[in-house]
């Protein structure tokens, strides 16, 4: 058996600056294809500096192209985002439980993304588009701080132009050039005209945002077990033994990062669990 602690070297094939502090890397995984499910994450190791958990943001149908979207916010993500094509990262994974895209077949599906939360949801969205006939309405509701903070703006535009999807974007603050909705992303959920009996919600973003999204979905009558959230915690081992990501009775790395609201909703009411 492979040692779960030891990373595999992979070469950066391309690098794309998404926003001022966020970068998308494509790694060459052709030697060791990474077959992942939407919502899973990997551990990325920058040699000699440290390791960090990052959601896969690429297309699950392309296991030889491992794509991550990384924001430079910490002691490891900052040096990682400085890497260039040809540089090498260590990769472990994929790890964790995926978005319930299989369970959602036959349903209307709403993805609600806030900020960098778009990255872990992108593979789920690509999966919905690739298997469009298996789903009812598919909606992508995106919230960002400002228009400049939007991830994948070109793709958002292309997806929005399709006739079989509904894509809405709102920002908290806008300059004069913005003509779209302004306000929090939950408002988009209020306006979506959902049929609670046949809708599944998957949301990723800051915890406060996900809490409000879940509250709005519940208010509309969507059952808690059809609302999924993706959690961020300090993850070091990714295999449920280092303890850092414990959250209630769960290890976020192993039992999550995607959870049903029926399982975790009560935890959002207690600070510091």
């Amino acid at each position: 058996m492979n040692d779960p602690w030891v990373p595999v070297p992979m070469t950066i094939r391309s690098r794309r600056q998404e926003t001022s502090d966020t970068v998308t890397f494509e790694l060459d995984a052709s030697a060791a294809p990474v077959r992942f499910r939407p919502g899973q994450f990997t551990m990325l190791w920058r040699y000699g500096l440290g390791e960090v958990a990052i959601s896969v943001s690429g297309d699950p149908r392309e296991p030889e192209r491992l794509v991550h979207t990384i924001r430079a916010v910490g002691a490891v993500t900052r040096p990682i985002t400085q890497l260039r094509p040809g540089d090498v990262l260590g990769v472990r994974g994929p790890f964790g439980r995926p978005w319930p895209v299989d369970e959602a077949e036959g349903s209307d599906v709403v993805l609600v993304a806030g900020g960098l939360g778009m990255a872990p949801l992108r593979p789920a969205w690509l999966h919905l588009l690739a298997n469009r006939e298996r789903y009812g309405r598919v909606l992508l509701l995106v919230g960002a701080r400002t228009p400049a903070d939007l991830l994948f703006p070109d793709q958002l535009g292309a997806w929005r132009a399709r006739f079989d999807t509904e894509v809405q974007v709102t920002v908290d603050r806008a300059d004069a050039g913005w003509r779209g909705p302004i306000g929090v992303v939950t408002r988009l959920l209020e306006r979506a005209g959902l049929d609670p009996a046949r809708t599944r919600v998957m949301t990723c973003g800051p915890e406060v945002m996900m809490k409000f999204v879940a509250r709005e979905a519940l208010r509309q009558g969507i059952p808690a077990d059809r609302i999924a959230v993706s959690m961020e915690r300090n993850m070091q081992c990714a295999i449920g033994v280092c303890g850092h990501c414990q959250w209630g009775a769960d290890f976020v790395c192993r039992d999550g990062p995607v959870f049903g609201w029926d399982r975790v909703g009560a935890r959002f009411a207690v600070a510091g669990v």
Binding site: W5, C242, G243, H244
Partner: peptide
């Protein structure tokens, strides 16, 4: 108690170790 933390330790030759400590 089983919690641990992992950190990189490097030396002057450029070699690196991943070291795990109780946390």
């Amino acid at each position: 108690c089983f919690c641990t933390a992992v950190a990189d330790v490097t030396d002057a030759t450029g070699a690196a170790e991943r070291v795990r400590r109780w946390d």
